[in-house]
Design a protein around this nucleic acid. Structure first.
Length: 430
RNA sequence: GGAGAGGUGGCCGAGCGGUUUAAGGCGUUAGUCUUGAAAACUAAUAUAUGGGAAACUGUAUCGAGGGUUCGAAUCCCUCCCUCUCCGCCA
C-alpha cells in the first residue's frame, strides 16, 4: 500500500509516478483523494459524538452510584438520542473507509526515481553486461529439454501422466542435480549471513494480502478446496516477508536477512503458449529465495548487495548472465525497483530471466503493519522489505544443461557443484 | 475428527456490566543513596490517529470480526489460535 497521506498531499505528483507504471491508475488515485476528504470529515464527526457519549456514560455511572438508578434516567434518555445520530455517521464513515481500502489495495507501489520510465520490457536497461565467456560449440547446441530427455534425467511425458501439462519429473542424476543445486545455493547464502528457514508451503490469505498477491492476483494462486483461508505459496517471499508481520521491531535488530528453499506453485494463467516445453515455466518449481527487512535509509544499498548475492550463484557456477534494470511498466506490483538477472541460453541464443531482486520499500510493510522503533527516536516507522530469487533452481538446471553440454550429449558438472553432486559429469547410462 | 479449558501490556497475572484513567508483580529506563556496583527508595514505561507551537487533549485498541447496552476486557454470535485428554497418523 502506498502512503495515503502522500497521495492526498501531493496528488498530482503521485498520479504522475503511478502513470509511469503504465497503469490506468490516475483516476483511482483521484477518487481516493476525494473519498479521503469526505472520510476525514465523517470520522471527525463520529469521534466528537463518541466523546460526548463517553462523557454522558461516565456521568450515568457516577449518578447511579451516588443517587440510585432513577436519578440517571434523564441522562440516559439524552444518551439514547445521541446514539442514533452516531450510528448514522458511523455507517457513512465505515462505508467510505471500505471504498478507500478497496482502491488502495489495488494501487501498486511507486517506482523509484532511478527506474527508467516505459510501458513494458522494451524500456528495460541492461545495467551490467555479461563478463563471463559464452560457451563455444563446434556443433549445434541442443535445448535443455532435448538434452534432459535423451539423458533420461527429465521426463515430461510421465509428468503429464501424473499431473498434467507444465509439470516436470526429474529422474536419477536429474533429481540429484536439482537437490545438489538447492544445497549449493542455500550454503552460499547462509555463509554470507542469511538465516535459513524451511517454511510451510501453505499460506493464509492475510499473508498474501501483506505481500501483495491478494486481492489483485488471486487467479494466479492455487486456492485449497474447502479451505477458504489457505493457498499454496507462489514464492518463499510470502512466508519469509511475513515472518514478523504486525510486529514492532527494534532498530538494533535490523537489518534481517532470510533465505529459504521452497517449492513454488503458480497457475500461470495467461501464459498460454509461452515456454510450454521444459523447465522454464511450470506450475510447480523449486526456488531459493532471499528476503531482507531493513531500515528505509539502507534499503537501496541492500538491494545492490542482495543482487550481487544472486549474481554470485551464477558466477560461481560459471553461467554467463547480465543484469537488467526493469522499467516502470515491467515491474511487479509491490516493487519500487527491480533488477532481473538473465542467464545465457545457447539454444535460444539469448539471455533469459533467472532471478528477480526487488526493493518493495514500505509498500508491503504498510500492508502487513510491520514497523520498527528507532533506538533514540520517538514513534515507529515502517520497515523496508526486499526479496530476490537466489535463484530459480529449475532454470539453473536448464542453464547448466545447455551451457555445459558436450558433443556426445553428456553434461559436465560445474566445478563448484561437484562437492554437492559427487560426480563431474552426467552421462546416459540406465 | 471428538470432548474440555483457555487467549488481558515486553513478560507473569487480577478484573467477569459503571471512579479501571486495565490492580499487583517481574523486567526495562532514569533519578536518589554509594568510591563503584548491588540492594533499597522515587519516578517513568504501549500503539495508531485527530487537534495544538507546546504543555496538553479527543478517539480507537484486552486473539479477530460482528451484536446487545446510555456504557463491554466483562454478556451473546461467528471465526482464528494455544493447551489437556481421546481417536487417527507419517
Amino acid at each position: 500500500m502506498i502512503d495515503i497521506k502522500l497521495l492526498v498531499s501531493n496528488p498530482i505528483e503521485v498520479q504522475e509516478r503511478l502513470g509511469n507504471r503504465n497503469s490506468k491508475l490516475k483516476e483511482d488515485a483521484a477518487t481516493v483523494v476525494g473519498l479521503y476528504q469526505e472520510y476525514k470529515q465523517e470520522l471527525q464527526k463520529v469521534e466528537e459524538l463518541r466523546a460526548k457519549r463517553n462523557n454522558l456514560s461516565k456521568q450515568i455511572g457516577v449518578v447511579r452510584a451516588k443517587e440510585g438508578p432513577v436519578a440517571a434516567q434523564a441522562i440516559m434518555k439524552e444518551a439514547n438520542t445521541l446514539k442514533e445520530e452516531m450510528a448514522e455517521a458511523d455507517v457513512k464513515m465505515t462505508e467510505l473507509k471500505a471504498q478507500i481500502d478497496k482502491l488502495m489495495l489495488m494501487i501498486p507501489n511507486l517506482p523509484d526515481v532511478s527506474v527508467p520510465v516505459g510501458p513494458d520490457e522494451r524500456a528495460n536497461v541492461i545495467v551490467k553486461e555479461n563478463s563471463l565467456p559464452l560457451p563455444k560449440f563446434d556443433f549445434e547446441p541442443k535445448d535443455h529439454h532435448a538434452l534432459g530427455e535423451a539423458l533420461g534425467i527429465l521426463d515430461f511425458q510421465t509428468a503429464s501422466v501424473l499431473s498434467g501439462s507444465r509439470f516436470a519429473l526429474l529422474r536419477g542424476d536429474g533429481a540429484r542435480l536439482e537437490r545438489s543445486l538447492i544445497n549449493f545455493m542455500i550454503d552460499l547464502h547462509t555463509e554470507a549471513g542469511y538465516t535459513e528457514y524451511m517454511p510451510p508451503a501453505i499460506i493464509n490469505a492475510s499473508c498474501l494480502l501483506g505481500t501483495g498477491q491478494l486481492p489483485k492476483f488471486k487467479e494466479d494462486m492455487y486456492h485449497l478446496e474447502g479451505e477458504e483461508d489457505q493457498y499454496l505459496i507462489s514464492t518463499a517471499e510470502i512466508p519469509l516477508t511475513n515472518l514478523y508481520r504486525g510486529q514492532i521491531l527494534q532498530e538494533k535488530d535490523l537489518p534481517k536477512a532470510f533465505t529459504a528453499y521452497t517449492p513454488c506453485f503458480r497457475k500461470e494463467a495467461g501464459a498460454y503458449g509461452k515456454d510450454t516445453r521444459g523447465l522454464i515455466r511450470n506450475h510447480q518449481f523449486n526456488k531459493v529465495e532471499m528476503v531482507w527487512l531493513s531500515k528505509p535509509e539502507n534499503s537501496m544499498e541492500i538491494l545492490e548487495k542482495m543482487t550481487l548475492e544472486a549474481e554470485k550463484v551464477l558466477k560461481t557456477l560459471g553461467l554467463p548472465y547480465q543484469r537488467v534494470l526493469l522499467s516502470s511498466g515491467d515491474m511487479g506490483f509491490s516493487a519500487a525497483k527491480t533488477y532481473d538477472l538473465e542467464v545465457w541460453f545457447p539454444s535460444q541464443n539469448c539471455f533469459r530471466e533467472i532471478s528477480s531482486c526487488s526493493n518493495c520499500t514500505d509498500f508491503q510493510a504498510r500492508r502487513m503493519n510491520l514497523r520498527y522503533k528507532e533506538t533514540n527516536g520517538k514513534g515507529t516507522q515502517f520497515v523496508h522489505t526486499l526479496n530476490g530469487s537466489g535463484i530459480a533452481v529449475g532454470r539453473t538446471f536448464a542453464a547448466i544443461l545447455e551451457n555445459y553440454q558436450q558433443k556426445d550429449g553428456s553434461i559436465v558438472i560445474p566445478e563448484a557443484l561437484r562437492p554437492y553432486f559427487g560426480k563431474d559429469k552426467i552421462e546416459k547410462n540406465a
